[in-house]
Structures are given as C-alpha cells and as structure tokens.
Design a protein around this nucleic acid. Sequence first.
DNA 1: TTGTAAGCGTTATCAT
DNA 2: ATGATAACGCTTACAA
Lengths: 346, 346
Amino acid sequence: MRVTIKEIARELGLSHSTVSRVLNQRENAMVSDTTRDRILSAARTMGYRPNRIAQALKGARSGLIGVFMPESQEHFFSEVLFYLRRCVELAGFELIPFSCSPLNVEERWLKLLRWDLEGVLVFDYLLFADGLGQALLQHHGFVPPIVGLFNAESHLTEFVAFDFAPAMQDLLTHMTDQGARTIAYAAVPGSFHVAEHRYRCYQHFMVDHELEQHRIDVVGGTTLSESALLSAHELISRRSKLPDGIFCQNDEIALGVYRALRQHGVDIPGDIILAGCDNAPFVAYLDTPLTTIVLPIADACQAACQVLQRRIEQPDSEPTRRLMRTSLVIRASTSRNSRQPVQASS
Amino acid sequence: MRVTIKEIARELGLSHSTVSRVLNQRENAMVSDTTRDRILSAARTMGYRPNRIAQALKGARSGLIGVFMPESQEHFFSEVLFYLRRCVELAGFELIPFSCSPLNVEERWLKLLRWDLEGVLVFDYLLFADGLGQALLQHHGFVPPIVGLFNAESHLTEFVAFDFAPAMQDLLTHMTDQGARTIAYAAVPGSFHVAEHRYRCYQHFMVDHELEQHRIDVVGGTTLSESALLSAHELISRRSKLPDGIFCQNDEIALGVYRALRQHGVDIPGDIILAGCDNAPFVAYLDTPLTTIVLPIADACQAACQVLQRRIEQPDSEPTRRLMRTSLVIRASTSRNSRQPVQASS
DNA sequence: TTGTAAGCGTTATCAT
DNA sequence: ATGATAACGCTTACAA
C-alpha cells in the first residue's frame, strides 16, 4: 500500500521517530549525517509521501482552508474562487470549497465544521440572511477563524468588502450628466435590500437628487442573463415610457438587458444608457462596450487571504475590516457625447 | 476546544467506545435505549461534531475527491468545476481542487497524493503533455483511482471525453455550404496538436475537401479574448486577403476575433463567417450571435463522477471510456442565407 | 545521536 | 449491553 515512516524505519533498522525527525525537522536536526542521508535516500527511492491526514490529526496544522459559498454559476464567484485558490495555494494551504443553497446552508455549514480547517472564508451574503448567520455561528464548540467576503454590511468581526459608494456616485453622476432622469435599478428580487451596498447607494443618490426610483425585477429565466433578457422584453412591451438609463447590479444582467434592447431596436446609448457592474470579461467586447464598475477582485482575494493568515498565525491581533475601492470604467454604452469618454475613477 | 467522543463519554460516565457505537452504528446497535438516548442528547447539547480527519485516518473513507486542473481562468474550467462540485457533493464527498501551472505540475501532483483521496479527476490535457503524465503515474506507492477529463486521446484507463467529430463535421460542412473556402483555425499555439481532437477533425476535413489549412496563432494579450483580439487585428492589417471563415477553438477566442472584425468594419457573416466552441453564456447575446459547438458539460461531469464512484466502490469493475456527444448550434454569425437558421445537430 | 512512548479522535475487535 | 484495548500515521517530549 502506502509507504509510511515505519516502513522506512524497518527497512533501515531505525526507529520511526528518527525517520520522522529527519524528514521534517529543520536543518539543525540532531542526527548523524550518515543516518540522515540513509533516511533521505530511502525515502526517495521508496517513494515516501507524508500523510497529510495523519499530520493534521496529530494536531498541528491541517493545511486546509475552507470557502463557504453559494452554489452559483455567476462569473463573479468563479473569478473569486480562482484568485482565492491561487492565494491560498501560494501560501501553502489547500482550498476546499463548500457550496450550499438556501435550503441546506446549515447542513453544509455543519459539514464544513467537521474538517478541522485552519480558517474559513465565508460569503456572508446568504449566510446572514434572516439572521441565519448568527444562528450558525452560535453552534457550540470550536469554530475556526472566519473572514467574511465582500459584504460591506457584515456583522462578522473580520471581513474584506467592496466600497461601492464612490464608484456608484461617479456612475450615477455620469448618467445624469448624460441626460438620464429616470434611472432604473435592475437586479434579482432578493437584492433590493438595505444590506446590499449598491442598492443603498442608488437609493441615496436618487433621494438626494430628487429623482424617482425604478426597479426592474430580474426573474423568469434559467440563467441570470436570460432572466434579464425576459424581464427587459417585458418592460419594453409593457411600459409606454422606458427609463432613460438602467443600472444593472451585475454584468450578466446587463448583458441580457443589452440584448433585449438591441432586439427591440432601442439604441444604446442614444435611447437608453446602460451600465453594469463587475467588469466581466465579455462586456468590453460587445458592439457597444458596456460601462461598468470595476472591482479589484484579485486584490480583494489576496487581502482576504492575508487577513485570514494573520488571524491564524496571531490569534490575538486586532481584527481587520477592510473596504476595497471600486472604480468606474466609462465605455460607449453611457457615452452620448461624441468626445472621447473620460476615464473617471474613485 | 472541540467536543470529542471522549468528552461525551466522560460527561456521561461511559466509555468512549460505547459512545462511538451509538453515534455511528446503524439502528440495530447493541445498546440499551436509555444509554442511547443519553448519548444522543448529550451529543446534541454539547455540540458534538465528528472529526472527519480522525475518521479518515482510521482508514475507512476520507470522503475527499481531488481535481487536478490547470490554473486557468477560462470559462470552461469554471463551468466544469461547478458541475463537478455539485455532483461530488451530492454523492456525499467533498471536492478539493489542486491547480497547477506547467512549471509545477509534478510538485502539485505530489502534494495532491499526500491527502489520501478516494479518487482523482484529472484534466489530462496538460498532465500528459511531453509524456509527463506517464512519469507522474509511475511515482511509487499507492495512487488512488483516476478518471481522466475530456481528452479523447487519453492514455488513462478510464476517462470521459467529448467527441467532436460529428459536430466539427457538421460545422465545417455548414461553413462550406455558406460559401467559405478558406477556413482558418484560431487557437493558442500549443493547441495545434494531433492530441487536440478538434484540430484533428479540422485537418481531416480540410484534407478530404482539398481545402487549404490556415492557422491563426492566438497570442500576445493578458486574457484569451484579448490575445484573440490582438491576433485578429494583426491578421487584418497584415494580409491582403482574409479567410472567408474562422473557427475558433473556444468562445473566448471567438469573442476577441468578433470584436476585432467589427472594429475594422468587417461584416459578420457577410464578409467572414465566424464560429466558436463551448457555447459560453455570452455568445448568444452578441449583436450577431455566434454559431458554436455545444458541449454537454453537466452530463459529462456527472458521468465522470459516476465512473469514479463506481471505480471506488467496485475496484475490479470494467474500465469505462466514455465519449460524450457534442452538437452544433447555428446562429447568425455563420448564416448568410436570409432563411431562418436551421438547428443542426449530430 | 537515537529509541521509547504517549497522544491526536476515531473505529473495531475483542473481552467482560 | 458495555468497557478495555489496539490501530490508523504521524509528531514530540523524554529517556537512554
């Protein structure tokens, strides 16, 4: 079966502790050079591979970091997962994702806790819906260090999130500058919520500027883009007057809306200006490239990993709550003036 | 710290083995109803959570399935990962992804082997490049059951892959029907390889129909789409005569090429017909929706998980090599006739 | 410099 | 019906 330190020891007529010492003690190990060499070469030729499970059980480090995340196909999550994995692996850990749906959050959280993870990164959007998060965290027993992901309104003691305020301010200012007066907010129904930072920014702006708020509920399709397409279709065929501008909570929605508008011959940005959020890789490649809000996802993921690592290594250090700056990229979809769109940012 | 079986035992004045028996033996356990109840309620109130690491060490199941994959941001991998995770979690395992670059394949493979995984799903595109795969598999010691992912030319004893032949045949036939005579194949340099099924299909078709082959090397950008954009730009500004049609190895490339052509005022499908592969979620939403090849990714992932599970449960069963059918979706980007595009499929 | 032994949290095999 | 004990592979005092 598997080569263990015992087998190496037996092979060499040594004790397994000597082997262990050579194999993972630093250079200054108290062993004769000859035995060290014998052990090292035996380990190599026999193909010894340390058993992480046993090492983890022994109590030191498990080397595992969990991610608790919604089971979602959105590009945003893929991208986040990509960067998190990269950082975590670079730091010498392995990342083990636990996805869950609203129906099985608790079950999955319990499952996660069975692996003694050294830390957990939690997308606390859904976790904290309906106070469930509080309930989960109150589960008895040990809970590893947690860093919340991307909810600026997080109740967690540590988190990394995006500060949408400046970019949203820039964007909505830009949109009104372009002449938009009725600016709709397109999102899935659950997102029209005070805990949703982007929506809060929108509300504030509209109130401040005495503009009417409009919601577009994105529903009905099998994918987000399709839902957006359908909802936009419905909007167009229903209302006599369309909004002048539409902000979409993410670029998948923006894509669906874009397509619906084009299919109906609505000109972008002539008739309606359109903006999204996330800077998904495809939005710059549309015939009318989309204005969008750029999130420093890679940086945010790196920050989250660093915060978690610090918490792991120095359990008593000060909690970190970090807001990452977002910025605006203005493209053709909101640029009515013929002059070159200006790169605004926050 | 953590509530263990021993603590419950101590609390109740029982032995830890009794507790263990109650906690995971089936219903017919040989325990008095009263002690069972005491134990179960104690476990609940104390918040006992079985330690998977310890369970794994004890030798039964680790409950872990690994994925060995390239560190890539391509949408294809995200989607595959999404479905694999779903299937694996549904089957009661956890999925732990190990990503690697060409520079550290071996190191990462060794790292993976340290966790005693019950099975591994391997993207064997890169693993088997340069015969490295053979080398890795020959590492001494136990190697868990492996199922290869998506390489139809795999040398692994078990795999699930895509059969591009019918869809490629349909597509290229369709493209020539639309009048294309010089059809270029756009891909990253490493992909012009006999082991790449799509490319082989292309070569055969071109030879069979006595058509000249053209390569577009996709290079130079930071993302695949950007590289494609740049390469297409270069192509346009360099050559006097452009190809009539371009097949792109995936939709990210197709997107970049699409954008470049549009920027240069090249009409799609008027001047050039364009097709991609993967049916990425955005290609149907372009102003000129893209013809593409649809891979049954969800099914393929499910199949791969089933094959692996079977191998785990019945180590001596017959090896499975499964090819999944792909199909063609014809959209506007290759439809020159005004008549409604027909849904061809294989 | 090396070996002995205990322990990590489980499960499983024996006694009792 | 329950308890003592060994074992999984490893790390780490402590003893020799």
